[in-house]
Amino acid sequence: MRRVIGGRQFDFARRVAVMAIVNRTPDSFHDRGRTFALEHALTAVRAAAEQGADWIDIGGVPFAPGPEVTPAEELDRVLPVVEAARELAVVSVDTYRPEVARAVIAAGAGVINDTSGLRDPAMADAVAGTDATLVITHSLAAPRTLHPSPHYDDVTKEVCAFLEQRLRVALDRGVRPEQIVLDPGHDLNKNTLHSLELTRRLDEVCALGYPTLAAISNKDFIGETLDRPQSERLAGTLAATVFCVLRGARVVRVHDVRAAVDAVRMTEAMLGWREPAYTRHNL
């Protein structure tokens, strides 16, 4: 569980990486274009690093359906942010396009976050032979594609089977085991009951033997469970984040960086993995 990612060391046996989200998209799931303008994206990158983010995940195309974004447009959106962020934290790029992956790795990205789950196996080719980490995510449909009313007989078993199959694709194409992180894909082609079940049994995903990423921040399964709109899901997100860490997640993808960092670091301390910043009370 010891990894070097983006030139930084991580011991996932005793630490959890907090991944901040910076989207250069006008139609992003949560921030609705707040960081679409380059200057706003760069400000968000600096703020995330100052607030303790270990990784910064940069997206140029949302997973959900929307207007066409060409590979050239995607690169125009993400490359300047990659170049600005690479000295501040591990840079991740959320993309399903191999040509984009190659370009951002060359620019200094340490992680490719493929929410398509290697739907294009050439993504594995783009990562193989580099030092980049590949996040393999479960989803039933391709990005930008509707998939209403998804059905599973056993969502956790089916997600694990999918991830194992895509793992074999990556390894067969030369991606090293130490380059791989798995993401069960909360809410991606899943309803709220599916995501809750997957969270409850996240340890089964972690048992596949690779660091597991939980991308649960402000998602609809939290909103529907608590009857909260997008702007009021922080408490639910923090509860889900801590629960996922206790179930084995070692990377958490979040919008509200400072609050998530505090929740994760406090969890690490209670597990005996981290010393307090200082001790003065009753001494």
Results as ranks from 00 to 15, higher is better:
Arg274Leu: 10
Thr267Gly: 08
Glu178Trp: 14
Thr225Glu: 02
Asn282Gly: 01
Ala207Tyr: 09
Pro67His: 00
Leu134Trp: 03
Ala260Phe: 01
Asp31Gln: 10
Arg14His: 10
Pro177Phe: 13
Leu182Gln: 01
Ala215Gln: 03
Arg168Gly: 00
Ala84Met: 14
Asp183Val: 04
Arg97Val: 05
Asp227Asn: 09
Ile5Tyr: 07
Ala85His: 04
Gly60Asp: 06
Ser149Thr: 09
Gly108Gln: 11
Arg46Thr: 12
Ala101Gly: 14
Gly272Asp: 07
Ala170Pro: 02
Ala107Cys: 14
Ala215Pro: 09
Leu88Trp: 12
Gly52Ile: 02
Asp172Asn: 14
Ser116Asp: 11
Pro26Asp: 04
Ala124Glu: 01
Gly110Met: 04
Asn23Ala: 11
Thr192Val: 00
Ala17Met: 12
Ser28Ala: 13
Gly223Ser: 01
His40Arg: 12
Asp154Cys: 08
Arg253Phe: 03
Val69His: 06
Ala215Gly: 15
Ile216Cys: 11
Ile56Lys: 01
Ala240Ser: 04
Ile5Asp: 03
Ile5Met: 11
Val16His: 02
Asp262Ile: 05
Asn113Arg: 01
Tyr96Asn: 13
His255Val: 11
Thr35Cys: 06
Gly174Asp: 13
His147Leu: 06
Val242Gln: 02
Arg32Gly: 12
Cys160Ala: 15
Leu88Asp: 09
Asn113Met: 04
Gln9Ile: 12
Asp125Gln: 15
Arg228Tyr: 09
Asn23Lys: 09
Asp187Tyr: 02
Leu163Val: 05
Arg253Lys: 07
Ile21Gly: 02
Gln9Arg: 11
Thr130Lys: 05
Thr137Asp: 02
Arg2Thr: 11
Asn218His: 15
Val242Asp: 05
Asp172Pro: 13
Pro71Glu: 13
Asp220Tyr: 02
Phe243Thr: 11
Gly110Ile: 06
Thr95Gln: 03
Leu193Arg: 15
Cys160Asn: 14
His194Asp: 10
Ile5Leu: 05
Arg166Thr: 00
Arg200Gly: 05
Ala170Arg: 03
Asp11Val: 11
Asp94Pro: 08
Arg250Cys: 12
Cys244Tyr: 03
Thr237Cys: 02
Arg201Met: 05
Glu83His: 13
Glu232Pro: 01
Ala44Gln: 04
Arg14Cys: 00
Arg253Cys: 03
Ala142Met: 07
Glu68Phe: 07
Ala49Asn: 05
Val175Glu: 02
Met123Lys: 07
Asp262Ala: 10
Ala170His: 05
Pro148Leu: 07
Leu88Val: 14
Thr192Leu: 03
Thr225Lys: 10
Ile5Phe: 10
Glu232Phe: 05
Asn191Ala: 06
Thr95Cys: 12
Ser139Asp: 09
Asp227Glu: 13
Met19Lys: 02
Ala107Gly: 13
Thr199Ala: 14
Ala20Thr: 05
Thr137Arg: 04
Tyr278His: 11
Trp55Cys: 08
Ala64Leu: 14
Asp94Leu: 05
Arg173Tyr: 09
Arg176Phe: 10
Arg280Tyr: 12
Leu202Pro: 06
Ala13Phe: 08
Ala277Trp: 04
Pro26Arg: 03
Ile58Gly: 00
Ala207Phe: 08
Ile180Pro: 01
Glu87Gly: 15
Ala215Tyr: 07
Gly185Ile: 06
Ser116Val: 06
Val16Phe: 02
Glu275Asp: 08
Ile21Trp: 01
Gly129Leu: 15
Val245Asp: 01
Gln51Ala: 08
Thr43Asn: 10
Arg280Leu: 15
Ser231Thr: 09
Arg3Leu: 15
Pro98Asn: 00
